[in-house]
Write a protein that binds this DNA or RNA. Structure first.
Lengths: 135, 135, 135, 135
DNA sequence: GTGGTCTAGACCACC
DNA sequence: GTGGTCTAGACCACG
């Protein structure tokens, strides 16, 4: 499966699940009409409580990423991909923007921030050959 | 005062206070020997619970940024500036690193991340002419 | 066929089926003695689970709208039309009454409710020239 | 208290709670800045599980009706009243519209629907002297 | 089998 | 004291 959670990292488990589904839709790993794993199945696989998965799925419904077919399961909605790409991009933009603002508020100069960023990115680039996918 | 808190921003208030004191020391706005405001005074000024300020000050003591001078108050320790600069730098490095990892985990390519970062930094640079201080 | 279901509309599919048969009898579109489609046939046509159709038909039998003719199928009972008209009318009365009570419970005044109702009815009247059938 | 739930009426309890808070804000019974009852307090009063109240409050947060002040409670947001009035009005409009469409789909003529509506409204008007509040 | 609701009770961070 | 998260397990409606 394409989902994995990290219980001890501060981010709520239900949030990790919801986001990873969103990202999978954004990537096209889940296409419109595809059923996402059932609550019980995913709960078992991730070794979390079904309620936690159910909560993640509830969020996905309220964001209109998936919709239920009673007695069948939750399916990715047709318009979802574009929305997921947008929400992924917005989320990342917000994150980057926040960490930059924080760095400046902390008294670092823009040049220092840039140096910091560049060195961190270089580290990560080594383990991550460019994929070239457009979001 | 050099401190301001934002209750609705996710970051714990005590943390905001402690960090801002640390940053002020790193910048030299607070020098060794300077007294920081009393718990009651700062709590009143920020309109927060005194317990919250007390907790912030406890953190600052355990990080050895300030020390009590009995009957007088909490004063910035003599060796504190270097340590504050280091902890500020480490904090920022961690933040940047985290947001980069997250962006990659979300399926963005390093190039996209770089584009995102550059555009956000450009926005901030406009409002923040280089200060040139070295951390 | 006179039946169509809408899976994503909250109303259980079996209920939609049963009601539409009832309404067809009330309207005279189905007369006493007419056979309704077989479970398998209707299930295939509507692309729903045969169990769902079977459940709808069970309801119709327990409401005495149809009765089995062994080896032939389910036929509309002779006394059914009057009962269907009554149940349709009661259902509608209940619905209207519920939505009115709800609106008042929500804090709207009777006048506001009336305005709301009148404007909605006007919208619908345009697409629905009076049919004149008495229930 | 201004909230009461009806466990056996099909509408989820968490939904009843959320809606009644929304309506109270729409009516002005809860003003911007007011704290709503604590999760534990309301749960005790309504004799429901705290999780159920928490879920209702979560919905209210995601609709931006209330916002948390950590350690203090949930307060009505400043822009909330207009939004609550609108959402109340939209909810009612949808309800009325649905029951009208249903009635027409069931084979009643617009005139019959109007007669039905008028007679039901008359019943209710007796117990509910016009309040004249504008939503 | 599916999701949805609710209860009961634990633990955490924050104020 | 506050809300937030998670577990565990029951019950329901629907297909």
């Amino acid at each position: 499966m394409f989902i994995q959670v990290n219980a001890s990292n501060g981010v709520p488990v239900y949030d990790q699940i919801a986001r990873q589904v969103t990202f999978a839709v954004a990537d096209g790993a889940l296409a419109a009409g595809d059923l996402i794993p059932s609550v019980r199945e995913l709960a078992k696989e991730l070794a979390v409580n079904p309620n936690t998965v159910a909560r993640a799925y509830r969020e996905l419904q309220s964001q209109e990423v998936v919709e239920p077919t009673p007695g069948v399961g939750l399916a990715v909605r047709s318009g979802a991909r574009a929305a997921c790409r947008k929400s992924r991009r917005d989320l990342m933009r917000r994150r980057v923007s926040e960490s930059l603002s924080e760095a400046l508020a902390a008294g670092l100069s823009p040049d220092e921030v840039e140096t910091l960023f560049t060195s961190e990115l270089k580290k990560l680039r080594k383990n991550h050959p460019a994929a070239g996918e457009q979001a």
